[in-house]
Amino acid sequence: MKVILEAIDLTKVYKVGKIEVPALKGVSLKVREGEFISIMGPSGCGKSTLLHTLGGLCQPTSGKIIIDGEEISSARDAVRTDIRRRKIGFVFQRFNLLPTLTAKGNLEIAREIYGNGRDDKDHIHQILTLLGLENKVRHKPSELSGGEQQRVAIARAIINKPSILLADEPTGNLDTENSQVVLAMLQELNRKFNQTIMMITHNPEAAAVANRLIEMRDGKIVPHEHDVSWDAAKEDKIYI
């Protein structure tokens, strides 16, 4: 399987005044095409920092990130922005929809930023149907339930067919029922469209829908006894 994302010895140090706070302490990982990875760990262990760094929202202090063959860790902001636009889809815990736009408007703006404008209405319709949102296109976020908002956010994240979908606690603000719906949809996207997904979660049940689990602690990935290859991990949920 093709490696979609590779992180090599990533570190990230935040400066709070004169104090340096290390958030990532040498993280290395490989993500292959079609993987659905859950990242678990206690609060403050560096999960979100890892996701933001991998997604090019911030630069690592040291180390390398290669996304679909493009090195972004040392790239300047404009280049990281371009790679993020073309290759990354983000889903956040707080949905982060643009509140002034309708569901359809939120999707269209993602298309526009990507550079496709309104020219692919069929694709938008296909995704809205897949996520059960075809009747909600004219609704603004404030008129949608949490579950519906998160589905719109997922639709927006995948509308440009990104190489990898990065989800930061996508069920963190949802009740059990909506969480299950959202997780089922992520799973379906992974299975049907071979969408590569990395998902942060605190919820072991949510983590269980992934086919690979990464545990983090104190800015590092926790090593486990068995380093299982992708082929073996494909069918089972295995810690690596």
Binding site: L57, R85, I109
Partner: peptide, 14 residues
């Protein structure tokens, strides 16, 4: 401000 962050996370350039 938050909306600006959203646009940037979607890959919007400066």
């Amino acid at each position: 401000t938050r909306e600006i962050g959203i646009l940037k996370s979607l890959g919007a350039s400066k």
